[in-house]
Design a protein around this nucleic acid. Structure first.
Lengths: 221, 221, 221, 221
DNA sequence: AATGAATGAGAATTCATTCAT
DNA sequence: GATGAATGAATTCTCATTCAT
């Protein structure tokens, strides 16, 4: 998962080169990716508001104006950044969840995936945890369909467990999903802004998984 | 006076009981409070970066320059806002925790307190969840001693339970504290930015408490 | 000349305590002087525009508002400062010029006086050379009657020499006066902004005097 | 580009002959010059502190922000203005001094050049005499290498005369240089702020030259 | 007279965005 | 598509001055 297969605007799972025109690598897509990757770095270091568009451009090796050929404006750049990365996480989730036998295992897997992904990409971790809250507009759901989708994925797993009878029914799947994401988000934030010790998030993942899964289990008679 | 008297820091933990000169309310403290209260409202509505200092001033009924008599700059205003409010939360915690018989009950009480407080102050909820992440500088621990103190309070309760033998020892109190805060923070964020249904947070509080407390319980043999 | 006898508004030569109401030292005058002395220090250090009125107040040990009881505004403070100090210089000139037998000696004496005074008061030197040019309004002659008067004093000495036949008549006394003042001013500026070596100005005084006096002498047949 | 290309410094000594690409005038240099020319006018009229950057921009026919593409800040604009103009004066000096047979003639030529140049450019005269002292930072030598270089040029001429035996040795070339510049500066200031009669400075030039040159002559046995 | 908290006009500078090349 | 020079709106903070006490 080191080099995530970056998404295009249209499709979540396209591989890098297939842009439908055959041989030549899509110059445009290439540049869009370079900009997004530069944006992660710059936003992580300076924060969304602290980052200058010109810095992103320089980091991406393009001219200032070029950014506006691929993104409507600075905020759109941030939004597409999230969308892109969450698409990736969602795709991974979908791919791996099928393999897990029980809802509990699926939950554990989601936790491991999210924290694992961010542990490998500290910059991205900072962007996800910090920058997502820096644009009021982006925060309003609706602008963040991918985020909602991701929460829904978690909630569904919970609901499945409830349907199956292994997860207690007196908790709302959405509350659980939001709490869980919040818990992971908080851990990531502290980790990313602090020492970011290698393995720190992975270790935390197990503990959070244990607590949540145990806590969700239907109490024994 | 050239160097404006920053009356601020030392007044942070004072309870409102004036300044010891009896009848008249302390003019300074009074104005500082008005500014802080105005800031909560304006920051909640516009976000930290979206809010203009002049708007806060107008909302507080003071001149623009007056804000700089009490706060070093806009960011300091945000920082002191957090410090002030967290002080309040911490004081409430301390007051109420003594009355709880078990660590588990104390945990539940903390959860109820935090969500209860924020449910009553939606503006504050937005500021705490959103704005706290808008200033890179503030995020760096050390600038937020009160936040660290709050997490420590939670972690201590967990550690107590571990010492007493009722809470599982294979989880780090600090990880639990951070996760729990994250979970509550996430719920609050979603609530505050959405409908903010009355009772919504209180209802969630019970569920989160149940899950965490159950999840932390030492597994029955 | 170490502690110059400071002037009051009305009269140039009054000694410090005689304010006409007998015994008590004039509180007001006292404060005005403190402010002026503080202003010299602060203006010298920060320049006129760089100095805050509050700094002058603090340096003088008075409240900000007090300054406005004695001076119309910041610029007036600067203006009165010049007037006061030039009054002093003029008085010294008048006192000493009578004793000099020839116009040439009087010229030499003026040069020594001006540079001697400023050498003893480096702060004042900076203010005179630098700050006098910082307020457009003050620069316009008319607002600086004392300066004009000082130049006139020099010009008169030159005119005397011309009348007496010892000074060449093909130079304008006013041009000489202005050049001479400029020369002294330039030397002072460089001295004050640099090392300000003790004796530096005094030494320069002799040289400038020699050059000017020789240069003004009626050419031998 | 994030870091605006400060095209400034390197262009300072270039003579106007464009940028080597033949026909079209160098856009950048063109704009920089327009700004400098506008700055002279505005600074002369309002003084450095009284002038608003926006006024300079408007006078130059560029946007406010454009100024910051060519100059670090307002003070840098002033500094470069001096540097530019003094460069010109220095170049003229160098060009003309060679043609003068004696140090005395060279001195006279320098005086004529300086006053002549400023008489033709009253705005520049005001800026040089008044504004140069309005920025404390600029005054500190080292920030004004050109000024030091100019004084050195004068001092060298004096030293030459001393070596040749025609100028008295009991005066320091640097003191003479500083005095002479001060004298010219003072005359210019008075002229520029007053009527600025045509020919006024030129006429003064002769007198100052006569006085200084006579005054510097080795006394006849 | 003296104070100093409060005022609020004022200005430099930044930086997202555009558009002529 | 790509560029990057130019734009100019937007906003924090400063500080001279006032005036209620």
């Amino acid at each position: 998962m080191a080099e995530p297969a970056f998404r295009t605007r249209e499709g979540a799972t396209k591989t890098k080169k297939s842009n439908g025109n055959g041989a030549r690598p899509a110059k445009g897509e290439d540049k869009r990716d370079r900009i997004l990757r530069a944006a992660v770095r710059v936003f992580a270091k300076k924060g969304f508001h602290g980052a200058r568009v010109a810095e992103v451009a320089r980091a991406a090796g393009v001219a200032d104006g070029t950014i506006y050929l691929y993104f409507k404006n600075k905020e759109d750049l941030l939004l597409q950044l999230f969308t892109d990365r969450l698409d990736h996480l969602l795709a991974e989730c979908k791919k791996t969840l099928g393999g897990q036998p029980t809802p509990e295992e699926r939950l554990r897997r989601i936790i491991e995936l999210q924290l694992g992904l961010l542990e490998e990409h500290r910059d991205l971790a900072e962007v996800i945890t910090v920058n997502i809250r820096q644009s009021k507009r982006i925060l309003q759901t609706g602008t963040m369909p991918r985020f909602v989708e991701y929460l829904d994925t978690i909630a569904e797993v919970v609901a499945e467990g409830q349907a199956k009878g292994t997860i207690r029914k007196d908790v709302s799947p959405r509350v659980v999903a939001r709490s869980l994401f919040g818990a992971l988000d908080g851990l990531t934030l502290t980790w990313a802004l602090g020492r970011a010790e290698p393995g720190g998030l992975t270790k935390a993942a197990r503990q959070v998984a244990d607590v949540f899964i145990e806590g969700l289990r239907v109490p024994a008679a």
